[in-house]
Design a protein around this nucleic acid. Structure first.
Lengths: 231, 231
DNA sequence: TTGACAAATAGTCAAAATGACTATAATTTT
DNA sequence: AAAATTATAGTCATTTTGACTATTTGTCAA
């Protein structure tokens, strides 16, 4: 058995992959890195890597994401693991996938470690990825579609203050459908999840919309308890 | 690095644990085994073990469950993995937890392999388990509570033909709450998920209830699409 | 400065779903 | 034959929905 000798010894049969969704200009994106070395050099892939013997798996996910992309301090949540025998070439590697939602505007990408580049890709414009990364992405996207109907999700994907239309566009981007505007706002406002900022958006070439923010307490309550948001 | 030499070589940093929920006489149960050997000999724990180099992780879960308890041919679904540094004594082991729902009546338990005993425990009567197994159980139970509101679940937990009261008891056991009977049946029947068998239950000492079964097609549709069943 | 436009926000209304009940029906046991 | 039990049917006021129409507030271009 491989045993931990140095603090950065890694567990060799187990990797981590991060699926990071971003929202920007009404579009849903995914964060990919370009491998700078290794067997997939030059290919775009989900950011990921190996787990050390002396760190929790959750910690490993945050560390890897930060070292590869520069993105830190976000809430990563475990998606599931993928363990088919042949998912990785020439070696048995099981991977644990993590998922996070971020506001793409807030993150400047700084590729590092074994990544030569890092970039946001539109969800519908993702190239063929190595290993089973397309499968992980598909699973994560489906998972997000389900999630959006049962708990609030905009907190991480939207700016602090946002308009009702922005949050509607977010729902539409995730669910890949269009919804009726008046009905959407009525339903959303009735949940008491949003509080008005008493401010208007600026620099738009038409009537400015009111800005809202999330009520943190209600948001957490609803995340805990779940709700139903059918559209 | 440990390398695969024989087909039953195992991956040493990674284990599997199975959380099996059963429903019987209106009660929600969990399946535990008694360790017959190893560092937890004599203790009750979730059935689990090691993954071989030449099997998918999903396969490993089924194989282990069967060899330890005799239960086979059930749909095991991955729950999530647990990877804290200190979750397992003297060694770094990350575990992948699986979950299944079965009709406890249909399964005769046959302890085998490293298990000296296998038994159903009422969900509220589970002893202190080794490692982080109580944490896994708690996570899985919460997961089940959420799930029951968003997709049909009785298919595996109930007998082929069942009464409306049985399915209501199942919901009450999972959600740990009581619900209004007429309203529950109205809501359930309106979903078109159930089809009447045109049969009555037998050998009850009061008015016999009609038996229903699931409409497989609608069941699958709803599982796919999700729904909202707020109580 | 005025009218065309764009988008935000308000309001209408019938239909459906919900929650809290009450009433009745079908059995079996005493 | 009455009492007990559970199934099933029905009532009704309130809330939520879906599909709309209408109005307001602003920019921009002629």
């Amino acid at each position: 058995m491989a045993s931990p000798q140095y603090s950065d010894d890694i567990i060799d049969a187990l990797s981590i992959d991060c699926l990071i969704f971003g929202f920007k200009d009404g579009e849903l994106d995914v964060l990919l890195i370009k491998h700078g070395e290794g067997i997939s050099k030059g290919k775009w892939a989900l950011p990921g890597g190996w787990i050390r013997y002396n760190e929790d798996v959750d910690e490993a996910a945050s560390r890897l994401l930060k070292s590869l992309t520069g993105v830190s301090n976000i809430y990563l949540e475990q998606l599931r693991s993928f363990g088919d025998v042949d998912r990785y070439p020439n070696k048995r590697v099981i991977t644990i996938a993590y998922k996070a939602l971020v506001n793409a505007d807030n993150y400047s990408l700084n590729p590092g470690f074994t990544a030569s580049d890092a970039k946001w890709f539109n969800i519908h414009d993702v190239p063929k990825l190595p290993y089973d990364h397309n499968k992980i992405l598909a699973y994560g996207f489906t998972n997000l579609k389900h999630k959006v109907r049962h708990e609030p999700i905009g907190f991480n994907l939207l700016p602090k203050k946002f308009t009702l239309n922005q949050i509607q566009q977010l729902y539409e981007a995730i669910l890949e459908t269009e919804v009726d505007k008046p009905n959407f706002r009525r339903k959303l406002l009735n949940m008491n999840l949003l509080v008005p900022c008493n401010e208007k958006q600026k620099e738009v070439s038409h009537r400015a919309a009111s800005l809202y923010k999330f009520d943190k307490k209600i948001y957490n309550q609803l995340t805990e308890k779940g709700f139903s948001f059918e559209l």
